[in-house]
């Protein structure tokens, strides 16, 4: 069986709890820390002058080469545990250091806007 599609979400949408648990997400951020013993990493990103952090469970993508401070893209299912809270259970974790974040954000927004317009169109019909 195929997994659910990893929809792009901004890290601040995930950290604010706006995305439901169980959703498959794709997001980005700078690798802030990595604890191999717990298979845990933290991606951080800045938005509107605040830092947002997304916890990532990395057991499925290990071993990988952690470069602290580099941009990563993560794709995985959003899960919540009592001990660690909300975290992305990574199925894909790619280093994309050098990515044009502004352009990426505008591409995500462009895609959302398109679907938004289309759904609006269907509803009015």
């Amino acid at each position: 069986m195929l997994p659910a599609p990893g929809v792009f979400y901004f890290p601040w949408e995930i950290s604010s709890g706006a995305v439901q648990e169980g959703t498959t997400v794709r997001t980005f951020g700078k690798l802030k820390c990595y604890q191999p013993a717990d298979s845990q990493a933290v991606l951080s990103s800045q938005h509107a002058s605040t830092q947002h952090q997304v916890k990532v469970h990395t057991a499925f993508v290990e071993p990988f080469n952690p470069i602290l401070g580099a941009q990563y893209i993560v794709l995985g299912d959003l899960e919540s545990t009592e001990r660690d809270g909300l975290m992305v259970c990574a199925r894909v974790l790619n280093c994309v250091d050098g990515v044009d974040l502004t352009l990426l954000q505008s591409a995500i927004n462009e895609q959302r806007k398109y679907f938004h317009d289309r759904e609006g169109e269907v509803n009015t019909q």
Binding site: I73, C95, V96, D100, A107, I108, K113
Partner: peptide
């Protein structure tokens, strides 16, 4: 696609194709 350039270009292009042609 180490810096996502191809994927970003694709994401920007496809909505245009939809608006101009497919839709």
């Amino acid at each position: 696609d180490p810096v996502l350039a191809v994927q970003i270009a694709w994401m920007l292009e496809v909505p245009q194709l939809y608006r101009k042609f497919y839709d």
